[in-house]
Each structure stands twice: as C-alpha cells, then as structure tokens.
Design a protein around this nucleic acid. Structure first.
Length: 804
RNA sequence: GGACCUAUGGUCUAGUGGUAUGACGUCCGCUUGACUCGCGGGAGAUCCCCGGUUCGAAUCCGGGUGGGUCCACCA
C-alpha cells in the first residue's frame, strides 16, 4: 500500500464513488433472479418541487439504509424509483408556476407544460438521490404518467368494473371550486376558519322562525327547514311551511331526530348542498334540487340579482340585503373547523356530478382485515389505518374533471348507453383520441368517450403492480406482495389505504409483507418545513457543507415513525464521525503495513490475546444487536450502537491499548495477534457503518481491504455474521476491568495535570481474588498502557486503584 | 370531542422493575508517534404531576397536565 493521503475530502470522494457504482452497476437488480428478492415499493415523490429540503433527504435515506443492509445480507434487492407526475398535484404546481388555469389554456398546451415541468423535477430528484448515494437501480424508473403506469391503472379500472366493485352514479359529491373537479375524502384537510353565525328570520304564518347559519349565501338553495321531532317549541309547525326571506318562496318544515335541539335555535335549514347532512336529508326526504352555484364557485342564473358573484362576495351582499329587509337579527363571530381541499385550500363544496366510484363503505371490515395482514413498523401505525377505514364517510370517488391524468379506458354507446372497454393488450388508450375497435353488442358503432380522468391515487395505488408490469406481456408473476413499503405517516390514509384497497379487491392479496412508517424532518423548533415560512433547509447546501454521509448520519438518528427536528449540530457530529473513521482507519492501516491479510482465513480466538478477545467478543455482541435492529427496520438503534462501540471501545480503548504491541514490538506473535484483530475489527465496523455512510466506508474499503477481500465494493460484501465461537465472556470481564483501571490511572494524571505520557512509579490494584486471577494475565498490558513501573495487587471487596 | 404518540441534565437524545446513554454546550487539564472535527477529566437530572401494583418504579397500571399528530365537529 502506498502512502496515505492526509485528509479525506468528502466532496471529491463522494462523487468518485457515486460514479464508480454507476459504472460498475453495483446496485443493478439481477433480472435472472437467482437470489431471493427483497423488493421495495419506493414512494414516488410528486413532481412538484424546485428544491428539496433535508426532510426529503431524511425520509428517503431511512429506507435506503434498509436497501443497503438487505443487499449485504445477500438479497437481490429490487429498488426502483418512481415519479408521481400525473394528476392534480402536478397540475396545481404548473398552474401556479405559470399562472394559468383550466379556463385559460388549451388541454394540449397544458399537458405539454406538465410534461416539461415533470421532466425538470425528475432531474432535481435524480441529482439529490445520486448525490446522497442511493442504491437505486435507475433502470427500474417509472413515472405515473408513462405508458406502463397508464396501462396498469387502466387495467385495474376494468378489472374492478368486472368484479362489480364500481358505481357510476349521478349524485351530490364533494367538489373543489378552484380545481373545478370532484374530490375524495382523502383529499380533504381540516382547518379552523373565522366565520360568522347569522340569525335569520323565516316567516311561518304568524310566527318568526330563527335559524342560525354561517352560509347565508345558500339561502336561495334552501329546500326545507328541519327541527327535532321532540322539540316542544316547534310542535305546532307540523305540516306547515316557511317563507324563505329575500327570495320569497315556501319550503316545508320537517322533523328529523338528527337535529340537535341544543344547537342554535334548534331549527336548521337544509340547502342543496351545504354539507353532508344536507345531502343525507335531501335523499331521505326526496327534496327538490336547487343548485345556485356554478362549477367555478359563482352564483348562477337561478339567483339573477346576485348572479356572477363569487361565494364570499355573494355572502356579503346577501347579508346586506337581509339586513335591509330586517331578516337578519343577530351576528356572532365564531371559529369553526372546515374541510378544505388539501391541494389548494379551497373550502369543499358539493356538486351533483356523474362520476365513477369504488365501493368501500360496505367493505370496511374486510379492508381492516386486509390491513392486518401487513406487518406494520412501528406497529401502532396500524391503528391510524384502522381509524381511517372505520371513519370513512364516502365511497372512493375516482372521477376528476381535469386534463392531466390517466383517462378512463372506456366509451359509452350512443345508442344503448352501455360501456365499452378496450382489450387489455391495447392499453393504455385515450378514448378521447381513438374509437373502439369493435362495435357495441347492440350493433351500434358510434360512441362517446368518457371525458374525465382518473384520480391520481388510482395510479399511485398500483405501484406494486406497476413494478410487476401487471397484465402486461412481460408481467413478473408472483412479484406482489412486495417485501417492503416505506412511507411517511401522513399518507397512511391515502397511499397505504388505497394500495391495500386495490390489492385486496383485485387479487385478494396484501400489496406488501411489511410496511415501515417514517416521520418527518422538521425545522429546529419541531415545525413543518415550508418555503413560505422561511424555515426551509436545502439538502444540497447541507451536503455541500458537511457531505452526504454526514446528512445520512443525521437522518439515521430519527427513531422509526417519529418526527425529528433538524439540528445542524447533529450533522456536524456526523462529519466528525466520518473524520474519526478516516483517522482510525489510517492508523489501523499503518499498523497493518507489514501484515499479510490474505494469509488468514478465519479469526481464531486461540491465537489472540485477552484484550484482542475482549474487543472481538464485544464486537460480536454488536453484530448481533445491529442485525436484530436492522431486521426490525430500527436503523437508528443499529447506528447508535455501532457509533458508541467505534468511539469508545475501538478508538478510545483498543487502539490506545495496542500501541505498545505494534510499535515497540519485541514480541512478533503479540503483534500479529493485534494485527489480526485490527483487520477483522475495522472491516467489521466498516460493514456495520456501510448502510448509513456508504461513501467513507467505501473509500477505506477500496484503499485497503479490497485487495484481500476481492469484492468490487464494500456494498457487495456480506454482512457480518454473529459467531458464537468469537464470544468470550471471561476476556470481556477482564477487559472491562482493564478499562476501569486505566480510567482511574487517566483520572489521576488528569487531576495532577500530568500528561498521559507521564510515568508512574507504583500502582496498587485492590480487588477481589478472582479479579486478581483475571488481571494476572494482562498485568503487562496495564503496565504498558498506563506507563507504570511497579504494579502490585491487594485483596479487597471493592475495586480501588492506589497510585503513588 | 375522540384516537395515537410523547414528556429524561442548559439544549437535543437513548434506555431500563433496582436512581440513567450519547451528542452539543460548559468548566479544568493534556500538543500521549491516527485524529485539536482530537485526547483525558469535572460539574450538571428528585427521569412532567398525583395515585396504585411491588421488597423496590423514573421504568408497569390508572388519573391528570403540557406538547405533537391524525380524525370528528361544519345547521
């Protein structure tokens, strides 16, 4: 081995090894699949980010650790990347960035813009992920808008139809006025909004009926008043009608036990539609329909005096008009929770729309059961899934009145109205651009295409099947269930839920064997990172300053499932650790200069000295616990334990303890034993660190160990095996005593403000008899390490070191 | 309103039925032939509060309080 470079330059080395891995195809999935597969259902990030923050890096790093661990464990790791670039998230991103919307740009131009932006985002992700050293096989890349994904999601729609799990109904459904599309329950977000309770008078014969509402603009959509059948105040109203103020028409007064007597005046108006209650009452009592909004959230022709006003403006104007005619008698400010569309923050409204939906409400029990078949890590995250399923209120509406998404693969026959599907082999298709190849069974040959596109989750929920090339010619049979789904906890109700729904309905399978749920990287104060708040830490800048390994080191500190605030000092600790690994390795290699590693095959404890066995035995315990931790996806425990072992046992103790054996060696055998231990211990520790810090470990492996180990990369070597022959409790006990004694000696020198190199004339160790026996064999070590001239022993119940 | 998670030295953090881990900071010392991004040492924690189980609890159970997250509440 040549002279060692003095310093480690992470920026140069990390680029070098990233290039090396790419060139060698280190992380290629083996298509011949001779080894057992470990497959990862990688979260496809939305193609809607210009810069990525340390939270992104943290989330993806955490299962990258697992991918690397599994590879070293001998698995054929299937680690793809996907980009989620279809659907509303992308559309919103493009609309904002280019200041366009559905009404101001043609469909073709809009799709073109989406594709361009998507491409740019792909580059951003690729750059960060390769810079972080991710062991992704980029040949497995998919995009949710590509042919394969469109094929698979369209095929899933047809399959669900054939299994009679779909409904195609014209009914009131949740609607976003900004995005102008139907949306699903999972697309909601809850926010607290300031609003006003308005007490409004409805006249009924000679009585004033007061209702309280936050939505006076819905008064022209009022179709009935309701009160509780037990409410004594309103018994006389049975069979009566009330006059709607301002709009001068009459609505029936009805009784329903769901009305809360205590709330407001105990009277409520039912409009089409203000909330889910309205929808239910509308169905139950077969009430008329009075739609007052247009699809983009303005009052429509049915209210000529307010026509064209946006909802909020209409509210103000109507309140004013109510005031003027004396119908508004009281106003009171309130804060209340409102569902908004998570993509744009617009309050959820209702619109009657013909749409496709997947029936889930009548299958809650079996869906909860399906979730139980997956192993959840951490286990308590399963509860969130269960709660979500149990609390579902709507079937999964999958129609979106948008441009950029996967089209429904179907046409409607112009004559008989029945649906017509393409052949699976012809997918993907766009029914708006092509006609069916065969006529309708009714004989007719003219069709109308479905114009809507599918919910983006229709595609995302198919990621295991996209990876499996489901129903395609080159389908990978038995690929589902995949081994692992890694994802964050905030999308349990969407991605995890929808994926479980699809696999269960399509093939009565679990989509994966295991699911690991990670937390979020937050700002230093535990708040969510966002650009607008200015607490956004750009991943690239951290990497530039501290290295990718250091950022990964920080990411490995988060316990599975728990959010973690970003602390720059922890990245710095990572950087220090890397430097320490570099220096300790440099020192080890120096000591191994005249050591012929290829001469030994296996470590033999009988050839080692007590302190060597102490280290190796403790190392074995570390191997065991680290392996156990990784098996449970507890990378943070594995990292911490390895870290502590490396600093304390290896560097602070062992490396100091053997200096006298490797430098002032008169005893060649002793020196060789230390060298064997050094080689084995350093390589093992590098392997244990390799999943967390792939670059520095590779650097050192390449510099020294490769020559003997003969593998192209440390990442293709095998994970250390726990070997019970290498555990030696007696040596561990002895070594621990030595550490204790040396600590006392160091303490003495430190207190006396002496150099650790200072010699001591006489040291007496007082300890138990059996401890004396143990220590007898390492007396020479103690003397050499502590620079002690005379060492003697005394018997005592408690360990005590007397120094003169 | 419900559920889940969480509460540990100045700060962040690990863990356990027998008073506690590591990091950062702080103080003192050491240029020990890998490393000052270092080495050695010190100070600093009644492990949120109240009950219960136990020989023994900070660790288990119940209740409370604070924080986080998810869900419900939209008249």
């Amino acid at each position: 081995m040549d002279e060692l470079p003095k310093n480690y330059d992470a920026n140069i080395s990390e680029q070098k090894w990233a290039d090396y891995w790419k060139e060698k195809g280190t992380y290629k999935f083996d298509e011949t699949r001779k080894k057992k597969i470990f497959s990862i259902d990688t979260p496809p990030p939305y193609a809607s980010a210009d810069h990525l923050h340390v939270g992104h890096a943290m989330h993806y790093s955490q299962f990258e650790f697992i991918a690397r661990y599994k590879k070293m464990k001998g698995f054929n790791v299937f680690f793809p990347m996907g980009y989620d670039d279809n659907g509303l998230p992308t559309e919103r991103f493009v609309e904002k960035k280019h200041n366009v919307n559905k009404n101001t740009i043609t469909r073709a131009n809009f799709i073109k813009l989406c594709l361009e932006e998507t491409k740019k985002c792909g580059v951003v992700y690729y750059n960060l992920f390769t810079r972080l050293g991710f062991s992704i096989d980029w040949d497995l890349l998919f995009q949710t808008i590509d042919d394969r994904s469109r094929h698979v999601s369209q095929a899933s729609f047809i399959a669900l139809y054939k299994k009679k799990l779909l409904d195609h109904t014209d009914q009131p459904t949740t609607w976003c006025m900004t995005c102008q599309t139907t949306i699903a329950q999972a697309d909601f977000e809850n926010v607290d909004l300031q609003s006003t309770f308005n007490d409004i008078v409805f006249k009924s014969e000679n009585q004033d009926l007061i209702i309280s509402t936050t939505r006076p603009e819905l008064i022209p959509a009022c179709v009935a008043l309701f009160t509780n059948p037990d409410d004594e105040r309103y018994q006389k109203l049975k069979g009566k009608f009330a006059a709607v103020p301002l709009f001068n028409y009459k609505v029936p007064i009805l009784f329903d036990e769901t009305v809360d007597k205590e709330k407001g005046t105990g009277l409520m108006m039912c409009c089409t539609f203000g909330d889910k209650e309205d929808v239910e009452k509308w169905y139950k009592y077969k009430l008329p329909l009075k739609i007052v909004f247009t699809e983009d959230g303005r009052l429509n022709d049915s209210v000529p005096e307010f026509k064209g006003l946006k909802i909020k403006d209409a509210r103000a104007k109507i309140i004013e008009a109510l005031k003027n005619c004396g119908a508004l008698i009281k106003q009171q400010p309130i804060t209340h929770a409102v569902n908004v569309h998570e993509r744009c923050g617009t309050e959820v409204e209702f619109m009657k729309k013909k749409q496709w939906s997947i029936r889930v409400l009548d299958k809650k029990d079996e869906l909860i059961e399906a979730g139980n078949k997956v192993n959840w890590y951490p286990e308590h995250m399963k509860i969130r899934y269960e709660h979500w399923v149990r609390n579902l209120q709507w079937d999964w509406g999958i129609s979106r009145q948008r441009y950029y998404g996967v089209p429904f693969p179907l046409w409607y026959c112009d004559k008989c109205g029945s649906v017509k599907f393409p052949e699976i082999k012809d997918l993907p298709i766009d029914p708006r651009e092509q006609n069916p190849k065969t006529p309708c069974p009714c004989g007719n040959n003219t069709f109308t295409p479905e114009m809507d596109v599918m919910d983006t989750w229709m595609t995302s929920s198919m990621t295991p099947y996209i990876n499996a090339h489901w129903t395609m010619q080159d389908e990978k049979k038995d690929f589902v269930p995949m081994s692992l789904r890694p994802q964050a906890h905030d999308i349990i109700r969407t991605w995890a839920f929808y994926t479980i729904v699809k696999a269960h309905f399509l093939e009565n399978k679990s989509p994966w064997e295991n699911i690991m749920i990670s937390g979020h990287g937050q700002d230093p104060h535990g708040k969510k990172m966002s650009k607008s708040k200015g607490n956004f830490v750009v991943a690239d800048e951290v990497i530039q300053k501290y290295s990718a390994d250091a950022l990964r080191y920080w990411a490995a500190g988060a316990k599975l499932g728990e959010d973690m605030p970003y602390q720059e000092k922890d990245v710095l600790t990572g950087k220090k650790t890397i430097t320490k690994i570099w220096n300790a390795s440099k020192f080890t290699m120096m000591n191994l200069k005249d050591y012929n590693a290829s001469a030994i095959n296996e470590l033999d404890m009988h050839q080692l000295e007590t302190m060597d066995r102490w280290l190796i035995s403790k190392l074995m315990r570390l191997v065991k616990s680290s392996t156990d931790s990784f098996e449970k996806y507890e990378y943070s425990t594995a990292k911490r334990e390895t870290d502590v072992f490396f600093w304390q046992n290896f560097c602070d103790s062992y490396l100091e303890f053997i200096k006298h054996r490797t430098y002032n060696s008169t005893d060649e055998e002793s020196k060789l034993a230390a060298q064997k231990t050094l080689y084995y211990a350093l390589l093992t520790q590098l392997k244990l660190f390799a999943p967390i810090m792939p670059f520095i470990t590779e650097e050192i492996y390449q510099m020294y160990f490769k020559e003997f180990e003969r593998e192209d990369s440390i990442h293709t070597t095998t994970w250390p095996e726990f070997t019970s022959e290498l555990v030696d409790e007696k040596s561990e006990r002895t070594g621990d005593l030595v550490v204790q004694i040396i600590s006392e000696v160091r303490k003495y020198k430190s207190t006396k403000q002496l150099s650790l190199k200072a010699e001591l004339n006489s040291v007496t160790i007082a300890c138990k008899k059996d401890e004396q026996e143990l220590l007898a064999g390492v007396a020479q070590d103690i003397k050499a390490i502590g620079l002690i001239k005379d060492l003697s022993f005394e018997t005592s119940e408690e360990l005590c070191v007397v120094i003169e």
